[in-house]
């Protein structure tokens, strides 16, 4: 997987924040505004119901946007998702690769440098690291901060997507730490205007990429960054 084909703006579902009905209604505009990847995440929803939701999302999420299923590889297979996002404690990457076949994205959530290295060694296409800031999605979980994000970014060659309390205003700081992209729940789904929120994230990401490029920072600081050949 070419690291630059890894999605940058990830939207993660949360039925407690936004119903799937509402999400489906917004989806065409969310994708048009710049969401690259939608993660179907709905802990506690039984698999039978989840499969129905997955099929609905699949119909609406078309290239270049991708549909990823959180945790449940079986549902990812059945709905022909573009990949699976594994929790830190989830299935092994090898099982996901064997069952999904080629050309699919396999990512993993990590919460430490050690977990990032382990996931990279397993052959993940990307990592999600957080929570960078405090977030209502994980009440009580202390922010891990930008320095910790940078450490994780530099620990592996694998693109790192930052998550946790990331607002459009915070995107430049996160990208300057070397993050490949950001993952958002409430910043989009609980926004007064979710479509405008997506545009704001997109613009913030594209702007910072245009000037002080994060990849240059990574290379200059001696991290195990991607070579310029990848660009």
């Amino acid at each position: 997987m070419n690291p630059w084909s890894v999605p940058r703006l990830h939207l993660i579902t949360d039925p407690a924040v936004c119903s799937f009905e509402q999400l489906c209604e917004w989806l065409p505009r969310l994708l048009q505004a710049g969401v690259d990847a939608v993660h179907l995440r709905a802990p506690g929803v039984p698999a039978g119901e989840l499969l129905k939701v997955a099929a609905e999302l699949r119909r609406r999420i078309v290239p270049p946007a991708v549909l990823l299923v959180n945790d449940r590889l079986d549902i990812a297979l059945l709905c022909q998702a573009d990949g699976v996002h594994l929790p830190e404690q989830g299935l092994p990457v090898r099982a996901a690769r064997e069952l999904l076949g080629g050309g699919r994205l396999v990512g993993r959530s990590v919460h430490s440098v050690e977990a990032a290295r382990a996931a990279a060694a397993e052959g993940c296409d990307y990592l999600i690291y957080g929570n960078v800031y405090e977030t209502a999605s994980k009440p009580g979980a202390a922010a891990r901060g930008l320095d910790a994000l940078r450490e994780v970014v530099h620990a592996t060659h694998v693109p790192v997507v930052a998550i946790g309390g990331i607002t459009p205003d915070r995107v430049p700081a996160v990208v300057r730490m070397g993050a490949h992209g950001v993952a958002v729940i409430r910043g989009i789904l609980a926004a007064d205007d979710p479509i405008a929120a997506v545009r704001a994230y997109r613009q913030a990401m594209d702007e910072v990429r245009g000037d002080g490029d994060s990849r240059d920072i990574k290379r200059e600081t001696g991290g195990a960054g991607r070579s310029a050949d990848n660009r």
Binding site: G48, D74, P92, A95
Partner: peptide, 21 residues
Amino acid sequence: RVDLALALEADGVHVGVTDLP
């Protein structure tokens, strides 16, 4: 979890009415 069954190379999987059909 059918995926867990496959990953573990189980002999079988058991589902209920709210699980995968």
